[in-house]
Design a binder for these strands. Structure first.
Lengths: 249, 249
DNA sequence: CGGGGAATTGAATACGTTCAAAGGCCGTGG
DNA sequence: CCACGGCCTTTGAACGTATTCAATTCCCCG
């Protein structure tokens, strides 16, 4: 389903244009699931929200150490989460797609423990932390909704961990990754079969804990066996069943 | 996979005894951090809580698929979280120690996606989901507190992921694990140097995505270099600095 | 059309796995 | 109290897979 969400044909102008569009006018509103609590009350929330903030590829949404000023929901594009080790090494610890939260890992410490970088052109909605209470007052379900989102994020992390931390083979890891991305790109419960990746191979390799060469070989293998078709950043799932099987799901 | 699920050390009596002790009488109250919001209001919370539920080693707190009826905080003992793959394979995806939450990953789906098993004799406090609102009304900070806990859990998961998913060497993984456990066993911000592990090597190996033999070799290496001292389930950190260095923290 | 980064492919190496066996710990029973 | 047995843990050697370093191809952008 790929939706044209993550495709950004040279649209710098567009990005500038929609800087302060109301979400109700936004074509992407329906995928801004996290805060789509109900048609009526959305606007209340939105009044308190900072409208969609555009990010160019490579822009930081926040950096490790920044005070956490808002919770963010992605409305378009892809972000990667980076962990910076003491030695200064960067490691990709996650990707975030439209409709998902970003920055929730810093709520408790009140300070971001990771950095978030736009992989391609992207935009996010920000809910300022200091307005959370006000919003919650207006919308009783809001807090519960956020709560659910956080919980879901916990589950996603568990899944991530079990899928990649287990010392599976490189091929299995890649299969799990593709499956995961496909599911997160799914529309109305149908796993996406054609995906436009925003990140490059190095990002994926870092995320999966593999060398770029190993990742590349794994891509080749999955192609030779007709499980996927991949060319650059375009990806098609040819054999979902086999993909699931490989991913040990 | 071994799992001593079916072993039930002769402590049924002990377990029965403390079944309904008030938390204020509980020696472990001070480590029940998650819900120790303040001396005054704890009791209000506790009135709505199911008191400490005892678990013998091998007992399930919940199983994958169970409806989520409560959020749990560990007051003593160690639990392991198991992921059950479609093929029936069990994989340890986490350990939980006193003062930590268990079961939060199921809040959003409303159903447990993992299984939780006591590794040794343990006890947990349960907060019934259907009483969450009532508690939150009495204690304004409560919801925020839970929120923080969830957020922290997210961060912990990110850490876990980056520490273990990155294809570090087995030795580095083990170092990261020991460091993590030591920090979670820390009292007033001092990393613990002597730890009594509850889980066996197989559990750790499963968690780290290593074979038991590889894990054993890594333990041996860390001992030969005087980074740790380990005998059975007793563990001492001899060189914290070097441990951190190995863990790439 | 050409330059340069990204991605892929190819061989030698290193590390974790596998299969096998031995050692150590602890509870049970004599 | 000691001996036995079972299970957990450790060690050893051959193997397989990911890594490393190097070279080539592909593709985007000027």
């Amino acid at each position: 389903m790929s939706m044209n969400i993550s495709r950004h044909p040279k649209s710098e102008q567009n990005i500038k244009q929609d800087k302060h569009i109301a979400c109700s006018d936004c074509a992407l509103d329906d995928i801004c699931r996290p805060f789509s609590i109900g048609d009526r009350i959305i606007s209340h929330v939105l009044d308190s929200m900072e409208r969609r903030e555009p990010l160019a590829a490579g822009d930081y949404l926040y950096r490790k150490g920044d005070p956490l000023s808002s919770i963010n929901a992605i409305t378009s594009g892809t972000l990667k989460l980076l962990r910076i080790s003491n030695t200064g090494q960067e490691q990709v610890v996650g990707f975030r797609f439209p409709g998902e939260l970003v920055g929730e890992e810093g709520i408790s410490p009140g300070r971001h423990c990771l950095s978030a970088v736009a992989v391609d052109n992207a935009s996010v909605c920000k809910i300022p932390m200091d307005k959370l209470d006000a919003i919650a007052e207006k919308i009783p379900d809001f807090q519960k909704h956020l709560f659910d989102l956080l919980s879901r994020q916990c589950y996603v992390m568990h899944q991530q961990f079990s899928a990649y931390a287990a010392r599976n083979s490189a091929e299995e890891r890649l299969a799990a990754f593709i499956l995961n991305v496909a599911e997160r790109h799914s529309a109305n419960n149908k796993t996406a079969t054609e995906i436009q990746l925003a990140m490059n191979r190095d990002d994926i390799a870092s995320f999966l804990g593999l060398r770029r060469e190993t990742l590349s070989r794994s891509f080749s293998k999955l192609q030779k066996t007709d499980v996927i078709w991949a060319k650059g950043k375009t990806l098609k799932v040819l054999n979902l069943k086999e993909l699931r099987h490989l991913a040990l799901d």
